[in-house]
Simulated assay, not measured.
Amino acid sequence: MIDDERFVQHVADRLAGLPGVRAVALGGSRGSATHRPDSDWDVALYYRGGFDAGNLRGLGWPGEVVDPGAWGPLFDGGAWLQIDERPVDVHYRDLDVVEHQLAEARAGRFDWQPLTFHLAGMPGYMLLAELATGRVLRGELDVPEYPDALREQAPGRWWRFAALTLDYTRGNHARFGRVAETAGALAQASCQAAHAVCAARGTWVTNEKRLLESAGLRGVDEVLAEPGTGPDGLVAAVDRVRERCAAAVRAAGGVPDAR
């Protein structure tokens, strides 16, 4: 087995040679040099004017390859592959979409997409976060700074998501003793509030794996561990999560009147 650097350069060469591909970048923990020895490889190919997944299949790497758009308008599509006995996730990134999301972020706006494995969903500026925290291997890509307008506008929007989730959960699930619904909604609201905190700080977020830690909200675990199964206990759990989330958002300077 070749060493890691030769491996990733080999993968980058093959991907960069596919029709339509303008750049290749290494993301995830490998791109930010925070990986473990057993971490997988997240590689993004940036294309312009369309991409034919059949060309990726034609490289002959074992695994599953989906067409562009299969994972939604923002996350696009990609592949789960085994290359030289290493697990590699390939993500398609349409440069027209990335540039649109950058323009939106600079205007203080962002699109949002429900996404598997993401409790709070995917904000469009996550595409920018990948650029800012990854490593360009082939081609040229603009690495954006965190837009000031996004820092001003995104926290309030995320806090509204969180507050609405908490209000609905308290009145429609917790007070009726619905444990599963309450627990799930509290986890979602905590991630929404964590996005508000990170946006206020100008901290890029690429996924939710360390989102609560980054926002100082890991303490929500204590609430979810012992919510009780009766209505009173569940309502109290909702109120405690709200207190923790609102305090974190206020401390970050995102929404002064968060409550």
Rank of each mutant, 00 (worst) to 15 (best):
W41Q: 00
D96S: 15
E85K: 05
P37V: 14
Q101N: 11
L102P: 04
P87L: 08
R93H: 13
L74C: 03
W61I: 08
G60F: 04
S29Y: 03
E85R: 03
R48T: 06
G49V: 09
Y92A: 07
A105I: 07
Q113L: 09
G50H: 10
T34E: 14
E64D: 13
G72Q: 10
F75E: 07
R30T: 06
H100W: 11
F75A: 15
V98F: 10
L45V: 12
G50E: 09
D84N: 03
G69C: 08
P87S: 12
P68I: 08
V65K: 01
D84W: 05
D111Y: 05
N55Q: 15
W41M: 00
L115S: 12
V97M: 14
D52R: 08
D40E: 15
D94C: 12
G31F: 05
H35D: 15
G58K: 00
I83Q: 01
L45Q: 04
Q113N: 07
Q82R: 02
G50I: 13
D38C: 02
D111R: 14
G72Y: 09
D52N: 15
Y46D: 04
G60A: 09
Y92N: 07
D38S: 12
D76W: 11
E64M: 11
A105Q: 04
E104Q: 13
L56F: 07
F110S: 14
W41A: 02
S32M: 06
S32H: 08
Y47F: 15
Q113T: 03
G77S: 11
G60E: 02
H100N: 06
P37T: 09
Y47R: 04
D111F: 09
A53Y: 07
R106I: 08
S32K: 04
G72M: 10
G108T: 07
V98P: 02
A33I: 06
L81R: 01
G54N: 09
L115F: 08
S32L: 05
Y46G: 06
R109G: 07
G72R: 03
G78S: 05
R48G: 13
R57G: 04
L102V: 07
L56S: 06
A44W: 10
D94W: 06
V88S: 01
R48C: 05
A44S: 15
G54Q: 11
R109P: 13
F75T: 04
D94Y: 10
R93T: 14
A70F: 05
G78W: 01
V90P: 02
D96Y: 05
P73S: 15
L45I: 14
P73V: 11
W112C: 05
D89K: 09
R36I: 04
G50N: 11
P87K: 01
A105F: 05
R48S: 14
A107D: 15
G63L: 01
E104N: 10
V66C: 09
H35L: 05
A70H: 08
G77D: 07
D111I: 01
T34K: 14
A107I: 06
L59W: 00
A107T: 06
Q113I: 10
V65Y: 00
Q113Y: 11
G69K: 02
D89R: 00
D76N: 14
R93D: 12
